[in-house]
Simulated scan of single mutants.
Amino acid sequence: MDDAIEKAARAAAQRLTGPTYPTLAEDVEEALAAEGVRRAPGQYVDPTALGGLIVGISTLAWTVYNDIRSRGAGEPDVDAIARRVRQQLQQQEDTPAPELEPAERDRIVDVTVEETVNAQEE
């Protein structure tokens, strides 16, 4: 996994950790450690699914960011990346994700995309 993705996922977890998600940083670390481990279809999703979602969003945002840059379209816009990430997440029916209110999911996407772009620019 790319260092920028790991850095972005950790930074997003730090920003989102709070009373609602007190163990988010640890959940992201578990998701990073499990990244690449194959799971059987329909396998039980553990309560740390939010950590996995953040790692997945960071990976997807990194891919979108690099795709835009490789096409010579200039510096990618954070809002445009976030929109593409949301669209692709909606299309990925087999991706396990925690139940979230739409506004909360958007906030998580926004923070994670922003941290991913920040990690790319360093």
Score class of each variant (00 low, 15 high):
8 A>D: 01
9 A>F: 02
9 A>S: 14
10 R>I: 13
10 R>G: 02
11 A>P: 08
11 A>M: 03
12 A>H: 09
13 A>Y: 04
14 Q>P: 03
16 L>E: 01
17 T>S: 13
17 T>F: 08
22 P>H: 04
22 P>N: 02
22 P>A: 03
24 L>K: 04
27 D>F: 11
28 V>D: 11
29 E>T: 12
30 E>P: 02
30 E>F: 02
33 A>T: 01
33 A>Y: 04
34 A>C: 01
37 V>Y: 06
38 R>M: 12
38 R>Q: 15
40 A>W: 11
44 Y>T: 10
44 Y>K: 10
46 D>C: 05
46 D>M: 08
46 D>Q: 09
47 P>F: 12
48 T>P: 00
49 A>Q: 00
50 L>G: 02
53 L>P: 03
53 L>A: 13
55 V>D: 08
55 V>F: 02
57 I>H: 05
57 I>K: 09
57 I>R: 04
60 L>T: 07
61 A>L: 06
61 A>G: 07
63 T>Y: 10
63 T>C: 00
66 N>D: 13
67 D>Q: 11
67 D>M: 09
68 I>M: 07
74 G>N: 07
74 G>K: 09
77 D>Y: 05
78 V>E: 15
79 D>C: 08
79 D>V: 14
80 A>T: 14
84 R>M: 15
84 R>W: 08
86 R>N: 14
87 Q>E: 15
87 Q>P: 07
87 Q>N: 14
88 Q>S: 15
89 L>R: 14
89 L>W: 12
90 Q>R: 15
91 Q>M: 15
92 Q>C: 10
93 E>K: 14
93 E>Q: 15
94 D>K: 05
97 A>K: 11
97 A>H: 06
98 P>Q: 08
100 L>C: 07
100 L>E: 02
101 E>S: 10
102 P>L: 06
103 A>F: 08
103 A>Y: 07
106 D>H: 10
107 R>Y: 01
110 D>K: 01
110 D>F: 00
111 V>M: 05
112 T>I: 03
112 T>L: 04
115 E>K: 10
115 E>Q: 14
116 T>W: 05
119 A>H: 01
121 E>F: 05
122 E>I: 04
